[in-house]
Design a protein around this nucleic acid. Structure first.
Length: 696
DNA sequence: CTAGGGTTAG
């Protein structure tokens, strides 16, 4: 008996003694705490003590509120539908539930019914909720109707309603409307500014965001700032990569003690990451007292953006160790980090995990899978992922279009583009970069001049560079040069290098000289240009010129990057350097190369000696070629993988012509698909042919 | 008994 004496609503026999007020309070408390279990106990008590709530509107509303808040919207709806008479609060409770659980469009319908069927007028709560839905779904017309009603009814004088309106206008991209409401009474508070700023940031309207921020600083005392204000300020700093202001915001946050807010913490990590301040970011991250999935994902994403792929994967192990459950964004970041490093082994195990936890159908995850798999050289597999996606966005289409392009599969790339249009997906800037690199000249110009205009995409440097590539590929070098000289575009290294590469392949020595002069004038210390020049001179057997370029490189202390190739066998990556004897199985590998070389010679392979070798003894030349890193890597992969398995080799430089020719023969003699990715693109060798059609 | 604004992906 004594046991129950401390519990206020139990009598000395342990029986529940609750009056109506208690019940309402308890239901409210359990909704606020989202404690469904406790709330259900009260519901049960009402039932067993024979208190039917159907006609007791306040109790019924409290129950609807409870189930709404706790995510059991269907239960809430059942209780709502079974009420003989509902009031505005009943409608408000059910609408809030739908809003919070992502059923915004349902709310609008409910509001219509409330007005037309129950003949009730929206109050400030209803209006704020409906306006939220309008913001979420960008329902501008409905939102403006709400504005009219708020104005007529005077509800606009409630701060909540005003702020909801401001948010609606900025989410619907009506900046003028947002400012109009912001400047009308009642006086704007920090929340009003938070709302506009947040909407503008979501809409990517940075100039207006900056203007609003200045106005806010002038209008609101710093003491009024809350967590959301800080998040918005940090977002602005991040977008402008404004580290100075970001640091200022950071110190203000510390002063106010807002760094314990989860959202603020994640935004700080994000800000430092977007400003490229990896070390400061890590320091901030390490001292945060509260972290959740988003905080972890934010830092992993920052590592990804700054190309610290390995660091991202390593830190994930710690996240896993701390038992923070990854979400779909986390997996997207990790898979994209694998894409950055082209590691299929770890990428595949993440793929398996994604399937296991049932996250494969998220668009971000599907996109990351396509990215990872096609970066590892397996476009066909990436295409399977693409075809099986439930929902595709513009990124999915872009990834598969440029994936096919990089693999030299122009036809597939264009097919996908036309299917994209048939699927009513608007192409964007990036779509056309992928597409243009997969075209012939006439098609290229057609897409540039007609398609891009049709879809309102302004052509940029990348697109024009693609055109240079197309002209170059078809040998129309003079046209390419004229195009570059006559158009007012500010060309960069990539563009000129594209033309130089075309000169190299088509052996246009004179133009090549002009282009390399331009390049060396722009970038006097560009090693890539020097190497291409030297190769070009060598091709035309102008050894004196080769020597001159070498001398220039020596004078400027320009070193050729050592040639590296690597291949992944199971989960290990094996790296090979040219002339490498370091590998434990070095002897076996060299023997294998030798054997392959003699086999392909029977098929017609002729070693192609290049520039550096003109002063070397004839017998030694073959040895030099034999030890090119990609040959070593290919030989090793052939030794270590089962027959008919495709092999994948990656290289840090451009593939040399001799290796390219040899690999074509090797693919034929070994009946293997050999995928080599060099700095520029993929080469898919199959049955003696390469997907690049010998132009790269 | 009902109410606004937030961090991560390409």
């Amino acid at each position: 008996m004594k046991y129950f004496s401390n519990v206020p609503f139990l009598n000395s026999d342990g029986k529940i003694m609750l009056n109506a007020i208690d019940i309402r309070k308890l239901l409210k408390t359990s909704s606020e705490a989202k404690n469904l279990k406790f709330g259900k106990t009260i519901h049960a008590h009402l039932i067993i003590s024979n208190q039917i709530t159907r006609d007791r509107v306040i109790e019924r509303n409290s129950l609807i509120n409870l189930y709404s808040k706790c995510g059991e919207t269907s239960t809430a709806r059942y209780l709502f539908d079974k009420m003989p008479k509902r009031n505005v609060v009943s409608w408000g409770s059910i609408m809030a539930g739908y809003l919070q659980h992502g059923y915004s469009s349902e709310v609008i319908e409910l509001c219509r019914n409330m007005i037309n069927v129950d003949k009730l007028c929206p109050n400030k709560y209803i209006l704020a909720t409906v306006l939220s839905c309008c913001s979420n779904c960008r329902l501008f017309d409905e939102g403006r109707q709400c504005h009219g009603y708020a104005f007529k009814s005077g509800l606009i004088f409630h701060q909540y309603v005003k702020n909801a309106l401001v948010y609606m206008y900025s989410m619907c991209s009506d900046v003028e409307g947002a400012f109009w409401v912001l400047n009308s009474p009642p006086k704007s508070d920090i929340c009003s500014y938070n709302s506009v700023l947040n909407g503008l940031l979501d809409q990517d309207d940075m100039m207006e965001a900056l203007y609003t921020l200045r106005k806010m600083v002038a209008d609101c005392e710093f003491e009024e700032w809350d967590g959301i204000t800080c998040v918005n300020v940090l977002r602005v700093c991040a977008r402008f990569k404004d580290l100075r202001s970001g640091k200022q915001a950071h110190s203000r946050i510390l002063k106010r003690g807002l760094d314990s807010d989860l959202f603020v913490g994640s935004s700080m990590v994000d800000m430092y990451g977007k400003c490229g301040e990896i070390l400061s970011m890590r320091k901030v991250f390490d001292v945060l007292q509260t972290k959740n999935v988003v905080t972890w994902t934010a830092i992993l994403a920052a590592y990804l953006r700054n190309e610290c792929f390995e660091e991202a994967l390593k830190l994930f192990l710690e996240m896993d160790h701390e038992n923070v459950e990854p979400n779909e964004y986390t997996f997207a970041v990790l898979l994209n980090s694998c894409a950055g490093m082209s590691v299929l082994g770890y990428g595949n195990s993440l793929h398996a995990r994604v399937e296991k936890v049932g996250m494969k159908d998220y668009t971000v995850v599907g996109n990351a899978l396509i990215h990872m798999i096609s970066k590892c050289g397996l476009v066909e597999d990436a295409d399977m992922i693409f075809k099986n996606m439930l929902n595709r966005d513009v990124v999915s289409w872009n990834l598969i279009i440029s994936g096919f392009s990089y693999h030299g599969l122009g036809g597939e790339s264009r097919d996908v583009f036309h299917r994209m249009l048939a699927a009513k997906q608007q192409p964007n800037y990036i779509t056309f970069v992928g597409l243009l690199s997969a075209c012939g000249v006439d098609e290229g110009f057609y897409y540039l001049n007609h398609m891009m205009r049709e879809f309102g995409v302004e052509p940029g440097l990348e697109h024009y560079t693609c055109i240079i590539g197309l002209l170059g590929r078809s040998g129309r070098l003079d046209e390419a040069e004229n195009f570059m000289k006559s158009s007012p575009i500010k060309w960069d290294v990539v563009a000129w290098r594209t033309l130089l590469n075309a000169c190299h392949i088509h052996r246009d020595y004179k133009l090549g000289k002009r282009v390399s002069d331009i390049l060396l004038q722009m970038y006097p210390n560009d090693v890539g240009t020097c190497i291409l020049m030297s190769n070009m001179h060598a091709k035309s057997k102008r050894w004196d010129k080769v020597v001159a370029v070498r001398k220039l490189m020596r004078e400027r202390n320009l070193k050729k990057e050592p040639g590296l190739s690597w291949t992944e066998i199971r989960n290990d990556t094996h790296v090979f350097v040219s002339d490498d004897n370091e590998h434990v199985e070095s002897d076996l590998i060299h023997e294998k190369v030798k054997k392959l070389m003699s086999e392909i010679k029977l098929l017609g392979y002729v070693p192609d000696f290049i520039s550096e070798l003109h002063d070397v003894e004839e017998e030694q030349k073959e040895d030099y070629l034999r030890y090119h890193s990609e040959k070593l890597a290919i030989a090793y992969a052939l030794m270590k993988t089962p027959p008919r398995a495709p092999i994948r080799v990656f290289k840090n430089l451009r593939m040399c012509e001799d290796c390219h020719s040899a690999t074509k023969f090797i693919s034929k003699v070994t009946k293997r698909t050999i995928i080599v990715r060099d700095v520029n693109r993929f080469h898919s060798f199959r049955e003696g042919r390469c997907s690049c059609a010998d132009y790269w």
